[in-house]
Simulated scan of single mutants.
Amino acid sequence: MLQNESILSVVDNSGAKKILVIRCLGGSNRRYSRIGDLVIATVKKAEANKFTKKEEKVVMALIVATRRYFRRQNNTWIKFSKNCAILVEKKDKKIKPRGNRIFVPLLAEFSQWGYENLFKLKPEIL
């Protein structure tokens, strides 16, 4: 579970390396975010000449891996070694990734949650 001020690794090729969670989306008093949730974050570490403007430093991210256990419907549990996210843009209730590659395996549940366009980037599926 991630909360405000949590630091995440970015696992796509958008240019950001580390982000800090500003706000967990999904309610006014929501404290924690899990795999598959959207968060508002700021870029803390990036590649050279990326995210130079102030508006670009505040981004929206989708959490794809956490160290906290994730329970599947068949009562199996999945745990990742670090907290990871990918940067996304939200337009007309559709989520579009900012990068064009993902460097970690994605859960198969993302297609059930409405993130089918992530699988067009051809990541490994868990």
Rank of each mutant, 00 (worst) to 15 (best):
L2V: 12
E5D: 09
E5P: 00
S6G: 11
I7M: 07
I7V: 14
I7D: 03
V10W: 00
V10M: 08
V11R: 00
N13V: 09
N13M: 09
S14Y: 00
S14P: 00
G15Q: 06
A16Y: 02
A16M: 05
I19R: 00
I19N: 01
L20E: 14
V21W: 06
I22N: 10
C24M: 10
L25N: 12
G26F: 13
S28V: 11
S28N: 09
S28T: 09
R31M: 13
Y32Q: 15
S33F: 05
R34C: 09
R34I: 09
R34D: 10
I35D: 01
I35P: 04
I35H: 02
D37T: 12
D37N: 15
L38T: 07
V39D: 00
V39N: 01
I40V: 13
I40S: 07
I40E: 08
A41S: 14
A41F: 04
K44S: 11
K45I: 14
K45M: 11
E47G: 05
A48E: 12
T52P: 00
T52F: 02
T52Y: 03
K54M: 07
E56I: 07
E56V: 07
V58Y: 01
V59N: 01
V59A: 02
A61L: 01
A61R: 00
L62H: 04
L62G: 05
L62A: 07
L62W: 06
L62Y: 04
I63E: 00
T66I: 01
R68T: 14
F70G: 03
R71N: 08
R72D: 06
R72Q: 08
Q73M: 08
Q73E: 12
Q73G: 03
N75L: 13
N75H: 13
K79R: 15
S81I: 05
S81V: 06
K82E: 11
N83A: 11
A85Q: 04
I86L: 03
I86W: 01
V88A: 04
E89R: 03
K90D: 05
D92R: 08
K94E: 15
K94M: 12
K96E: 15
R98P: 00
R98M: 12
G99R: 03
N100M: 09
N100V: 10
R101H: 12
R101P: 02
P105G: 03
P105E: 05
A108L: 14
A108Y: 13
A108K: 15
F110W: 07
S111T: 10
S111C: 06
S111F: 01
W113C: 03
W113N: 03
W113T: 02
G114H: 07
G114S: 11
Y115T: 04
Y115G: 02
E116W: 02
E116I: 02
N117P: 00
L118H: 02
L118G: 02
F119H: 09
K120C: 10
L121H: 02
K122S: 11
K122R: 10
P123L: 08
P123W: 06
I125D: 10
I125Q: 09
